[in-house]
């Protein structure tokens, strides 16, 4: 699957790269995957799974998925 960590969430990814490919053995809860990568779930405010906005707590992901996550967005 492809995971895109938007905004400051890229800070938490390996190499601080916003986009990463993940190979999954099976369907897994997104929250568990983020925990494994090191992205704090508390910082994730918006999840887009294959183009649709979903609830982090209810979301499972698998290999062919594209997931985008974003933090709360402030101004500037």
């Amino acid at each position: 699957m492809i995971l895109y960590a938007g905004g400051y969430l890229a800070f938490y990814t390996p190499d601080q790269n916003p986009e990463m490919a993940c190979v999954l053995a099976d369907q897994v809860p997104l929250r568990d995957l983020l925990s494994e990568i090191g992205i704090p779930a508390a910082e994730v405010q918006l999840v887009i799974l294959n183009g649709a906005i979903v609830d982090l707590e209810q979301t499972y992901v698998q290999n062919q998925d594209v997931v985008k996550i974003f933090p709360g967005v402030d101004g500037g």
Binding site: G6, Y8, Q16, L46, I53, F70, V73, G75, G76
Partner: peptide
């Protein structure tokens, strides 16, 4: 601040759009 250093404020476009 890491985000501001790397992208600056233009990094806001996509998250605001999806929100």
């Amino acid at each position: 601040s890491w985000e501001l250093q790397h992208r600056g404020t233009p990094g806001l476009i996509e998250p605001l759009n999806v929100s």
